[in-house]
Amino acid sequence: MVESQAVVVPPAGATIFLVATVTPGHEDTVRGLLEDVAGLRRSVAYRAPEDLLTCVVGIGSAVWDRLFTGPRPRGLHPFVELTGEHHRAPSTPGDLLFHLRARRTDLCFELARLLTERLRGAVTVVDEVHAFRYFDERDLLGFVDGSENPQGRPAHESVFIGEEDPDFRGGSYVTVQKYLHDLPAWQALPDDEQAKVIGRTKAANVELPDGAKPADSHVALTTITGEDGGERKIVRENMPFGTVGEGEFGTYFIGYARTPDVTEQMLRNMFLGEGRATHDRILDFSTAITGCLFHVPTADFLDDLPAAPGSLEPGGPGGDRS
């Protein structure tokens, strides 16, 4: 049985997102760290097991072939930049993602410190976000975020790769974007107008009926239906962040999915429009400043990495690893 990384977990009280690029010539250092991530997490989590420290590692397209021989995950490619009539989703550098979650900030901080200490000189941290739970799972716009996430078996079916890519069964894909909010402009809207932008009521977190939900609302444009008529889901683990002295307020979007196709369709709808909507109205108040796509390998993959390029070692998904 394949052991996946801890992608589907209860909501966290604290999160740190680290995105890094790998310095050429230091791939062996990165491989050594990837094999030790699980042990480092256990070392920190042992101090407070009840606070549920987890670490998910994602690996980007540009660095994959520098780290491993053998096949690539079928859906792994660079984040697709989108330029619409009104808004843009940029593609930004990112070879590694570390998604750290716990009930307490200190556990995330200590693990982040250990990871970056091991990688010093081998990577450049290009984005670091310390995020937090805000009241009852709300974002800084005041709306509950992630309430439509699938639960239980449907969540696993939405997130984890199956037999469509057997070499990477049990892995996942994760898309991340950092959004900054124009809070003064947002707060100038009455609550009923904010609800129309989101497609849900603010206080009760109830989705607006179809007749009252605008075509350009966030909910309308991010509801994706498959060929069978069923809704295609992702698992969002979004978290708010901010720096009050600098007036920076944002949401770190992070969406896990079995295939990046679903998230990419959501983003196309948001930035390029769909039907009567030219774009998602939330983008009039929230600006995307980063965009990366990563493959999330299984825990088994990280424990026993495929051979490095140029190495004679056996291994790799589907290879002789006996």
Rank of each mutant, 00 (worst) to 15 (best):
S91A: 15
G245D: 09
W186H: 06
R133Q: 09
V56N: 01
V56I: 02
Y256W: 10
T21E: 13
I289M: 06
F249N: 09
S172Q: 09
T201R: 07
A20L: 13
A102S: 14
G13W: 07
A131L: 06
A112M: 03
D300F: 11
D216H: 07
F168W: 05
T243L: 15
Q187S: 02
F132V: 05
R268F: 05
L267G: 12
G199P: 08
L34S: 02
G170I: 00
H87Q: 09
T223L: 09
V197N: 05
A257T: 11
K202L: 15
H87I: 10
G94M: 06
P166L: 06
D182Y: 01
L119A: 06
V19K: 08
G273T: 10
T223W: 11
E246F: 14
L82P: 10
W64S: 02
E246R: 15
P190G: 00
M1V: 02
S311A: 15
E3M: 14
A307T: 11
H156K: 01
D165E: 01
D304A: 01
G291M: 12
F17P: 03
F294P: 15
E207M: 12
S91Q: 14
A45L: 04
L302P: 09
R101C: 00
H181P: 00
H77L: 12
D261G: 01
S311R: 15
D191N: 11
A45I: 00
G70V: 10
E163N: 13
S311M: 14
H86F: 11
P214M: 05
V44H: 00
G318A: 06
A288F: 09
T116D: 01
S286M: 13
E157R: 04
G199I: 03
A195Q: 08
K196M: 09
S322E: 09
F301P: 06
R138F: 03
A62Y: 13
E164Q: 11
F98C: 01
G229V: 07
E117G: 14
V56R: 07
S158I: 02
F294A: 15
V22C: 10
F241M: 04
R276I: 01
P166K: 04
E227W: 06
P166H: 04
G230E: 15
G199F: 05
R258E: 09
N269R: 14
R200F: 05
L33S: 12
D228L: 05
P24C: 13
H87K: 09
P49N: 01
E128L: 08
